[in-house]
Design a protein around this nucleic acid. Structure first.
Lengths: 213, 213
DNA sequence: CCTAAAATACTGGAAAACCAGTAGTTTTTT
DNA sequence: AAAAAACTACTGGTTTTCCAGTATTTTAGG
């Protein structure tokens, strides 16, 4: 890997000791990588970074206290020499995007192999991006689906969408907002058109999926 | 632990190599426990048990091929000397109950500590039950929340619920399943009643929330 | 085999959602 | 001040969902 005797300083943040153990184990054999610290909470991690430096953070998105995306944002903003690689189990696509837009330089699923993990760390360390194969698949799906295609909703539309998702009928919503049911219906129709939904069910589903609610 | 020179034979089943690695690492120091095999799929695990014996199975509930609960049921039925300890991340409460009713003798969250893991294995090995502290908390919560509150849906109901969530209308669903729209409607109504939803919107929302879809 | 649960299907009627188009009024942006 | 965008509201009609029952057939478990 030709890094001479400089070690990549890695910090692991995950609330599962098991995962920490696993990651450490996978990295043990690589002498140009040094696991500097392991944290099981977001607060712990942030405290650590106030006092120390690191090159790479392996950051779980499911933390008990602070959300992974939040921490990612903070680290990316404050410690510009520290790069974040997100970690999660499969199936949490929307989060991947959030992490990336919050400055994560890489993203891996927890079923990562040793070689992939090491490659990710070294790539990201050198300033490149690295996304696991599975993530890339998910992203291809998503880029169109979630980001490129997320319609900008107006304030009123968002408000009404929330009420729809919460199970209120058009009439109830109209009552609540002191507007005509006919108006609510128009908004409803516009929402469906914008979000490519054919009925309430898909409207709600898409709304939840895209975290518009 | 006074087991003489008999080792407890443990099999780990988890699709994340990382978790396997972590568990192995935690168990390494204990010489009365022997990790006999690790499987990353349900099929692999079942194949293994056809040819070998084990005392304890550490079984993840999220496997790519067969559901953990299914495997648990099979093992408990066929290999009465092999005890299952379920493994999962938090938040999958309903599954805990399923696992237990399928014959799991113990259940742990993946953020288990070394001592807890070892204790669980030895307790279960001796024929006792063992549930992690967090699981016990979750169960207390659950008894009301998940069982009292998450309705058990039948196979057909789940199937129809999925189709509803995917945006299909009653007629489309009926077509797809080769049944009368009237039947679908009945299911629909039963779903709403069971899930305490007043309309499609809340049905979809609740379904997604409770990960019934 | 028998029973309970699940799946199937119906009647008939009310409410809510969906569709297409139009258009006036406010607010924001340029 | 003009243009664009957002919010408002309507007509008139179709489709889908929602509600309250009832009832037969299958299926699964003891």
């Amino acid at each position: 890997m030709a890094l001479g005797n400089i070690k990549i300083r890695v910090v692991i943040v995950d609330d599962h000791p098991l995962v920490i153990e696993g990651l450490k184990s996978l990295l043990k054999g690589h002498k140009d990588i040094k696991v500097q610290a392991c944290c099981t909470t977001g607060a712990e991690a942030l405290a650590f970074f106030k006092q120390h430096q690191a090159d790479i953070v392996l950051l779980d998105i499911n933390l008990p206290d602070i959300s992974g995306t939040e921490i990612c944002k903070l680290i990316a903003k404050q410690y510009t020499n520290t790069y974040v690689i997100g970690l999660s189990t499969y199936g949490e696509r929307s989060i991947v995007n959030q992490m990336i837009s919050n400055g994560a330089k890489g993203y891996l699923l927890k079923n990562v192999t040793e070689s992939e993990l090491v490659e990710a760390i070294s790539k990201v360390y050198r300033g490149h991006y690295y996304y696991g194969i599975e993530i890339q698949k998910a992203m291809a799906n998503t880029i169109f689906h979630t980001l490129g295609n997320t319609p900008r909703l107006t304030k009123r539309e968002k408000q009404i969408l929330k009420l729809i998702v919460s199970g209120k009928t058009t009439n109830k919503i109209a009552d609540e907002l002191f507007i005509s049911p006919l108006t609510v219906e128009t908004h409803r129709r516009n929402l469906m058109k914008k979000m490519n939904a054919s009925n309430t069910a898909s409207l709600v589903k898409i709304a939840i999926e895209k975290v518009l609610v």
